[in-house]
Structure formats: structure tokens, C-alpha cells
Nucleic acid binder design. Structure first.
Lengths: 210, 210
DNA sequence: GCTAGGCAGTAACAATGGTTACATAGTATT
DNA sequence: AATACTATGTAACCATTGTTACTGCCTAGC
């Protein structure tokens, strides 16, 4: 675990901070000393991602949802923290997209480290900044792009995150992430197939040349 | 100036920090000791808003734009800072919506204060958090609402920010902010008028009951 | 093999929003 | 007052997306 942790955060954090993080990790009950999330598990609080990917969604009152962005190795997401802290029901949901290794940072450690370590402060600021930029990218695609472009972007990103050239999803699931209907996605996917960019199969899509 | 500053930030910052901010303010060339922005002026860097309002826009490569949110008294926006710092052309534009009093925080003071003052750190974190939430609200309305609802939200927010019940804008300007066309806005505004919710005039709109 | 349930293909239609084009009405300049 | 410019009203049309409905197909469970 220590190797993995250093590989993900060693170039960012001071030695002393890394040691504290290891301690927090080893407090956890899981033998390896940190948390393993299964696909589909919900994340609450502030995670330090060591491997895998987490999908962050926006949800509105009517149950409509929308994919915001993915978290990857070396990322964190203060939003999942601050959302849970503030009473405001700032509805954000974070779900493990793949099997994921991470360390959950306790709230009081978070405060402590912010005062104590410059590298931690910078990390948190950078994290906020990166999340903001990703939100803006998402917002761009919704505001400025048509659905065909959004779909292509989605497929590319999903393939990148999962390090595969197949998307293991039904059309309905894609429709949820992009907040549209299954029929619309099927229609557009069929077009992409006719253009030779993808290959459609039951429950998965093979990317040829997007 | 000192009174105004304390009114905006006194309950947030430690006394010592307030004094440092006053010093930064009094370094500025303007007699009153801090910056006055005229309507339409561009903001670069990190502002501490004392009065007035700043409009923050997203811009894409084709010159399309979209209103993100407003900054008000007591707000700051680290995005306008970090955007200017990082070379990445994360296109955000901040413009004074009304005449505005503010203090521009120099970058090295920013760093210094973050290390030195807990209240400053909390302020910055809160700021990031608030900006994220406002971005999410904006994103919600784009993703989940139809144009008529977005327009109503826009009119309400604009009235609130300007503390008036008239919107001093042409249809074209509203269309830019919502990233749609003038004809669409005229159409919807006319509907709202027929419903008795607003009154249309040349160059301004009077809000009756939204 | 048979059946039920989930998944995908497709057609027909509706709704929303974007585009073009032109008319009319204020406003400013001379 | 004549002119030019800007803002608004409106109609007609198109493109994109959303909706409904029905089809066939695959797969799991019997």
C-alpha cells in the first residue's frame, strides 16, 4: 500500500504528510490498510484515490441525473465532503465506476493538515480548481454542443477512464448519464455505426475510430 | 472605506487580517484607497467585493457566451485568479455589472494570508464551495429546465442583483447571457407579458409578478 | 425447447428552439 | 421633418430532440 500511495501522491505531498496519511489508512479495518470500493458503491466524505475511478453525478429532485465528471488516481473531491457537511441538499452522488482503492480522510484530519502542510493546502486548492474546470467543460458541452457531439465525447471519456475500447453499457444507461432518452441514444449510436466509427452489440459498444 | 470593509468582512476575518487588507487597499492609487470599477469594466485577478456586483461569464472559442453567476458584497472568486495564473485558456470573463467597489488582492498576499490566517483559509474554501454550488445551479437550469423557466430565473436573479424591479436590457443582451437567439427571447417575453407577469418596454422590462 | 424480461431498432409524431425574413415603432442626428 | 439606426413583433419554416408505440432479438430460467 505504501508504494501505491507514494506513487500516487509522493510527488505532491511532504514526507511527513505521507506518513500521516499512511497512519490514517492503516486505521481502517481492511487488511491492506485502506478502503476497497466495489463497482457501484457510494462514496461519502473525502476520498484520496489510489486507483480506479469514481463517477460523480448531479441529481435533481425529480430523479433526473447527469454525469459531471470522473475522479481518477491522485484526485480528490472536496465537493463530496463539503456537500455532506453542509446541511444544504446539494445533491451530488459519487459512485465507484470501477473497483477502486482509496483512503477516506477524516474531517478533523482534513482541518489539521490544512493548517500544518503547505503541500496539502496546495493539493486542496488544486483539487477545487480542477473540479471547477471539469464542471466548466461539462457545462460547455451541455450548453454549446448538440447531442451527437456530447455522445462522442462521452464514449471517448468512458473508454479512456476504463482503459478499454469497449463501453460496457446499455443505451438506457448512457441516456441517463447524458440526461436524454434511450431512443435518442439508439438513434445516434446507429448513425455512428453507419459512419464506421463504432460497432454496436448487445450490452456493449466497440469503439473503432471516434 | 474601513467601515465598509468591516461591514463586508469584519464578521469573517480576524482583526489582524482586516488590517492587512486595509493596507493593501490603501496602496492603491485611488484616493478612497481601493478600486472603483465602472459598469462594463473587466476584472482580472482576485477581487474582494465591497459593494456592487460582478457578472461572471463563460466564453467558448466561437465567441459564444453564457452567464455563470454573479458575485456580490462579501464574495470573492478564486477562479478569476487561478484562470489568469494558469496558462490554460480557461475562458472566464468577469465584468462589473454595476458600479463596484473592491480590493484586488495581490497574488503573494494571497499565499501569505493562506498560511497565516485560518479565517482566510476558511474564506477561500467557502468561496470555492459557493462558486461550485452556483455553477451547479447554473448547470441544473441548463440541463433540466426549458428556456421559459431559464428566462424567468434570469429575470428574477437580475432584478435581485440590481435591486430593482426593472431589467435594463435589450432582448439581444438577454439572449447572449442565456446563449440563445433574440427571436426566441422576444417570443417568450411576449408570452410572459400576455400572462401578466411582466411589462415590456423599449430597452427595459418591468417585473410585475414572476 | 419454451417463455419472460430486458435490450435494441425503427417509425410516426409532437414540442422546443433556432433561422430567416420582413414589418413596425421608437430614438437620435442632422 | 427627413433620415438612419436600433429595438421589437411576428410569421413561416427547419432541425433537433423528446415521446409513444410497436417490433424483433437475445438470454436466463424453467
Amino acid at each position: 500500500m505504501i508504494q501505491e500511495l507514494k506513487a500516487s501522491y509522493g510527488h505532491i505531498f511532504e514526507e511527513a504528510l505521507i506518513n500521516e496519511i499512511i497512519q490514517v489508512g492503516t486505521y481502517k479495518e481492511i487488511p491492506e490498510g485502506y478502503k476497497l470500493m466495489d463497482i457501484g458503491e457510494y462514496i461519502k466524505g473525502m476520498p484520496l484515490l489510489i486507483s480506479g475511478a469514481i463517477k460523480v453525478l448531479r441529481e435533481d429532485n425529480d430523479g433526473d441525473e447527469l454525469l459531471l465528471y470522473y475522479l481518477e488516481q491522485g484526485d480528490t473531491c472536496s465537493m463530496t465532503l463539503t456537500c455532506c457537511m453542509s446541511d444544504a441538499k446539494s445533491e451530488i452522488r459519487a459512485i465507484a465506476e470501477t473497483d477502486t482503492k482509496l483512503i477516506m480522510v477524516p474531517v478533523q484530519k482534513m482541518e489539521e493538515w490544512t493548517a500544518k502542510y503547505k503541500s496539502w493546502r496546495n493539493f486542496i486548492f488544486n483539487s477545487y480548481h480542477n473540479r471547477l474546470n471539469e464542471l466548466l467543460t461539462t457545462l460547455d458541452s451541455i450548453a454549446f454542443d448538440k447531442m451527437d457531439m456530447r455522445l462522442i465525447g462521452y464514449l471517448k471519456e468512458k473508454a479512456r477512464i476504463n482503459k478499454e475500447d469497449t463501453i460496457q453499457n446499455t443505451h438506457q444507461e448512457i441516456a441517463y448519464d447524458l440526461h436524454t432518452s434511450r431512443v435518442v441514444i439508439s438513434r445516434l449510436l446507429k448513425k455512428l455505426e453507419q459512419m464506421g466509427k463504432i460497432e454496436l452489440h448487445r450490452n456493449y459498444i466497440k469503439i473503432l475510430d471516434l
